[in-house]
Amino acid sequence: MEAVKGWRPESWGRVTDVVERRPTIYDVAERAGVSKSLVSLVLRDSPKVSEQRREAVLAAIADLGYRPSQAATQLASSRARSVELLVDDYRNLSFVGLVQGLRRGLTGQGYHLTVTEIPRFGNRLDVPGVAPAADARVLAGEPGRALLAGWNGPTVVAGWRGDDARGEAEIARLEADLVAADDELGARLATDHLLDLGHRWIGHLSGSSGPAVHRRAGYQQAMAEAGLPALVVGDRGTTEDDGYLSASTLLDGHPEITALVAANDLMAVGALAAAHERGRTIPTDMSIVGYDDSPLARYRVLDLTTVDDRSVPVGEAAAQALLRRIDDPHQPATRTLIPPELIVRGTTGPAPTHP
């Protein structure tokens, strides 16, 4: 057997002493003080990286002598980079603007947006249709019990979610950023508008979702400051049927009511039907305000006074927050509130002399 040149028997068992570990992308990230994903962006020469961070990463690469695997680089650059939006009801018209805003915010960033409907009160993330390889997620539905169990990726919550203890715990665990309309302010704008028109008996159609809870709080604050009773019905869904049933309950129980503030535009449509059935003319005998300024509210046949929840700017801000979270997963969680706007149309008018 031919001896191997340069090999000495005494070196047996000490191979690890002379073989140096090849630096990895994680070593580069640690040396530069950035995330692994940001190092990947530098390797792809992404314009999203600031010059200061780019120089820090390049310096770390030079110091460590890091050489990326060509196969890994090709795989990373060719894979589909996906942001998944989780919604709990495709029928919710406020999601239309949110999707539009998210797409605007992600344009030119190399990510594509997918939308997945999740069970309203689902308790698992691996429901049919949820993309397992999403790079990041935007949550626009109620978390439910452990909905996001097993998910630790970059997350942004769009709109008020998780108003029960379990949902709050899930969102806190993920250190998710929050981007939402200031719904308490929006409901106050709607209620103050009706008060300015002379209405004193104003009811509210509510629901159990996070946005509905904050809108209810804004209505109650405005009524308390006016020294008037808060009349609230509804603690579950916010569909057109829910609006019809809640409005019927309020109008039958309190016929003195001359105005209603609904948690969303769909509930307002249901309230319009309930008012018409009881012989109320809109806006002569009854004023109704919706919320969201959905496409439905803009139909001329409805001409619904509503609150614009600024869903498009919320979506754009959510996309920006998500991109920052992808670049730096360890940054502190942020909260961004977008001011809503009152849109006065044809379903509100001065309070009638006799209800």
Rank of each mutant, 00 (worst) to 15 (best):
L185V: 10
S246F: 11
D293Y: 05
D327V: 04
V49G: 00
P68H: 08
P295H: 00
S77Q: 15
A262N: 09
L86T: 06
V18Q: 11
G105P: 00
V301E: 14
E316Q: 09
I25Q: 06
F95Q: 04
R145C: 09
V157K: 02
T73H: 12
H112Q: 14
T347E: 08
H193C: 08
I326V: 08
G153T: 05
H214W: 11
L228E: 03
D292V: 12
A274N: 08
V99Q: 10
E175T: 12
L296I: 15
A169F: 10
P128K: 10
S11P: 08
S46L: 10
V28R: 03
R120Y: 14
V157G: 01
R21I: 11
K36M: 13
A230G: 01
L43T: 01
W160L: 15
S77I: 09
R8V: 12
V83P: 00
G349P: 06
T281P: 00
A187G: 13
A146P: 09
G150C: 00
G167A: 10
D303Q: 13
A172K: 12
D63P: 10
L323E: 02
E55K: 15
T347Y: 06
S294Y: 03
R216S: 02
P143D: 06
Q221M: 11
G290H: 03
P9F: 09
D308M: 03
V28S: 03
G279V: 01
A273G: 13
W160Y: 10
G279A: 10
P229C: 11
T281C: 13
G186T: 04
H199A: 01
M223K: 02
N123Y: 14
A224V: 06
K36T: 14
R215G: 02
D241N: 14
L322S: 00
I171E: 00
N123T: 15
G159I: 05
L189R: 06
D327P: 01
V115A: 08
D182V: 01
P329K: 09
R22M: 12
I343W: 03
A319T: 03
A333P: 01
K5S: 15
K48C: 05
V138F: 05
A169R: 12
H354M: 11
E117S: 13
L304Q: 03
L245F: 15
V289N: 05
A134Y: 05
L38N: 05
A140L: 02
V18I: 11
V19L: 08
A158K: 00
M267G: 08
H330K: 14
R324Y: 07
V42R: 05
Q331M: 13
Y219D: 01
G97C: 01
L194R: 02
V130D: 05
Y291S: 00
N92K: 02
L322Y: 01
A176D: 02
G105T: 09
L75M: 15
S40W: 08
T336Y: 00
G153E: 03
V96G: 12
A29T: 06
V28I: 06
T336G: 04
A134Q: 09
L102F: 08
E184R: 15
A217G: 07
M1P: 07
R31Q: 13
G159H: 05
G203A: 09
A149R: 09
L231H: 09
T116Q: 01
H112P: 00
V87Y: 01
I171F: 07
L189D: 01
Q221W: 08
H276N: 07
P313Q: 05
T73G: 15
P229F: 10
D164P: 01
D241Q: 15
T336L: 04
E341Y: 02
S209Y: 08
A76M: 13
